[in-house]
Amino acid sequence: MFDKERFSVKFLSLVLSGLLFLTLQTGCENNPDDDLGPIVDVEINFKAQFDDELLLMRKNYQLDDSTEIRFTRVSFYVSDVVLLKNINGEEEETDVFDLQLVDFTDFTEVNPGNVADGISFVGTNVPVDRYDGIKMGLGVPADLNRTSPAKYDSGHPLASSLHYWQGWQSYMFAMIEGAIDFNGDGNFDSDENFLYHLGSDDAYESTFIYDTLTLEEGKNPTFEVKVDLRRLFRKTDGTPVFDASDKKTTHNPDDFAFISQLMLYFSQVFSL
């Protein structure tokens, strides 16, 4: 005997199951993670250097034959770090991590800690591939730069009030402080300090480092990024990048032309 009610229930179940299957299939097809293929974690390791030497804060280095320099603070934000792949002349970007604060200030002569280990950040789920370089933003992207330290939990890179400047309503993208023995008398006099606090949206820079970077399945690579602070002050031929004796301090957006110029110079101290 035909049970109309039972048939309806069975029919409805079949239809619903079919719909569910279709939904899952469609959903899965749209999930980009399924297209990634093998993925690995990528460690970006920043090392402060002065030429080929690891850079320690508060230690004197020879800027040139007659001029000594020492750094007391070097810190900067890196953001939107991506791996680059050239495809038919177009650069495709693959995310590594969003934003971190690189701070070398605690690496001192007395307490060198793990200066040789540098400072590392890890990007996860990066597709295995052969890449052509790294792009790093230097500074805080404009949308985040509209926020302030109070908005963040402690430990977040943007929670650092030291790296925020209320006067600009901006984070300090880079803080580079120290002293240069400009007069060559063997002392760092109080008027020989330099202090560069660089920030504001328009000062945001990107640095591109081109090299073949191969990510292999099952291997989590580390890419070492050298931050050679000598290159902020001296070109490879030894001539000054800018006249630091004439411009020892900047931390005011009214000084934007210089801030912008210095951020550009700073973007050129990075290499793999």
Binding site: S148, P149, A150, S161, L162, Y164, W165, Q166, G167, H251
Partner: peptide, 10 residues
Amino acid sequence: GHCHNIPLFT
């Protein structure tokens, strides 16, 4: 403001 910055004024 360098040393006594917001939000804690230190």
